[in-house]
Design a protein around this nucleic acid. Sequence first.
DNA 1: ATTCTGACGTGGG
DNA 2: CCCCACGCCAGAA
Length: 109
Amino acid sequence: MSSENQNFFSRVYEVVKQIPHGKVTSYGAIAKHIGAAGSARMVGWAMNASHNLPEVPAHRVVNRNGLLTGKHHFDGTNLMQQLLENEGIVVIDNQIQDFENVFWDPGKK
DNA sequence: ATTCTGACGTGGG
DNA sequence: CCCCACGCCAGAA
């Protein structure tokens, strides 16, 4: 229902909000954490709605490849990359370097 | 109501 | 190793 629907988005936002500074996570990791494993696409869709939520650092969410697939949705062309680099994350050609090192597992603070 | 696409992921050839 | 297809749920045309 709508409530659960909202809950789904809220859960995604909560997880993203909990991403520590200088860290990133993947859509699948979030999806799995909220119980929507396999529906990683919905996480990305939720991100679109999170555009209005400044507390949701969508730029810290990338695909499991560590690639800034959603950078195209951000303002400008390489805003997402610059935001990540601003946090100490090395990004080259939309690809996060040392991804496993900056990867943050949801629920694992 | 039907069809396609979309900020993904996994599996198979 | 690279390419293709399928599954997921939701929203827009």
